[in-house]
Design a binder for these strands. Structure first.
Length: 327
DNA sequence: ATAATTTGACCCTT
DNA sequence: AAGGGTCAAATTAT
């Protein structure tokens, strides 16, 4: 660990990064110990909670913990939560337009965050996610140094509603069972408000409401991200923890009502950057009624946040992660 | 016929 | 110049 005593700032950053790394490693360990004794699970949850509290303390104490070197899972948010619809927005034509720089800047400052989706080997689903939104693939690239190509998706309603939300999906080089999913931009399309008003409904049903559009969607080659989760159930860590305390004999769990990943994430997204729950907002997902297919999604929002920007925004009351998921 | 995906090319950023 | 993000024509699927 690099030591730098200049006003102590680097030490704080290093410690923060180490805490983040330790917590993520413990979470990874949990995946491997999932089928082991419930007592071990409880201990792991305790460890994660302790790390979360430590991390929470660092931010509450006003540490300057903006990452000095960022992990691949860094979440970076840049201010503007608004992403006004843009008509006929073509980057190439934009650049020759006098307003192009504005548009490019606006696109540049789109909020961005990354999630990791880990799929158990027995799942047979390669890796995918359902965030209740309709996505359309528009590109794929081989990324330098990465084993697997990166797929690019944009909102299905980009053309007719000007929704600029995009998503990137890339299989992790280190762990093929993990997919890095990077979201950029806030949905401004009708489905966003639709999901907000009906977020308590199952996304399966929600998708049914958009039957005409969704039936035209087909799974991407990656598999999968499009339809995965339609049969998923999800539980937050706290709920998992509580249920494990109540019934430590079972490592299986399910949500009272089947709820696709991001629907639940939205519903449970009542965290604040200063709330320790915000740090432990990862989710355990399992296929409907299939205990053998336990899927974990880890939300790395806090650990990877550009903390300096986030804290500034929170101080200015301009940003709330909760708001972010409620377009 | 229509919509989604694939893929080479283009453009921007670093 | 290299790498990443996007476009758009061609291809494939429904």
């Amino acid at each position: 660990m690099e030591i730098n005593n200049i006003n102590g700032e680097w030490q704080q950053k290093d410690l923060f990064n180490e805490l983040v790394q330790a917590r993520d490693l413990v979470k990874k360990l949990r995946i491997h110990l999932d089928k082991s004794s419930p007592a071990g699970e409880v201990l792991l949850e305790d460890a994660i909670s302790a790390l979360d509290r430590a991390l929470s303390t660092t931010t509450r104490s006003g540490w300057d913990v903006a990452p000095t070197h960022l992990t691949s899972t860094r979440i970076n948010t840049t201010g503007s939560v608004e992403s006004p619809p843009l008509k006929n927005c073509s980057p190439r034509s934009d650049v020759s337009d006098p307003h192009s720089t504005d548009i490019l800047k606006r696109r540049k400052i789109q909020p961005t965050w990354t999630e990791k989706v880990s799929v158990g080997s027995g799942a047979g689903i390669e890796g995918s996610s359902n965030d209740c939104y309709s996505w359309r693939k528009y590109g794929q690239k081989d990324i330098h140094g990465a084993k697997h190509p990166r797929s690019y998706y944009r909102c299905t309603y980009r053309n007719n509603q000007g929704c600029l939300a995009t998503r990137q999906v890339q299989r992790s080089s280190e762990d093929p069972s993990v997919y890095d999913v990077t979201y950029r931009g806030k949905h401004s399309c009708i489905q966003a408000s639709h999901l907000q008003t009906k977020q308590k409904n199952q996304c399966k049903n929600e998708n049914g409401d958009h039957k005409e559009e969704d039936q035209k969607q087909k799974p991407s080659q990656e598999g999968l991200f499009e339809n995965f989760g339609k049969g998923l159930r999800i539980k937050t860590e706290d709920e998992l923890f509580n249920s494990q305390k109540l019934s430590s004999s079972s490592s299986s769990f399910s949500f009272p009502s089947s709820m696709p990943v991001d629907c639940v994430k939205m519903e449970n997204c009542n965290f604040s950057p200063f709330d320790r729950n915000y740090f432990s907002s990862s989710y355990h997902v399992q296929l409907n009624g299939e205990d053998t297919n336990t899927i974990h999604t880890s939300n790395h929002r806090q650990s990877d946040f550009d903390d300096a920007v986030l804290l500034d925004l929170v101080e200015l009351n301009q940003y709330s992660p909760f708001d972010y998921f409620h377009p």
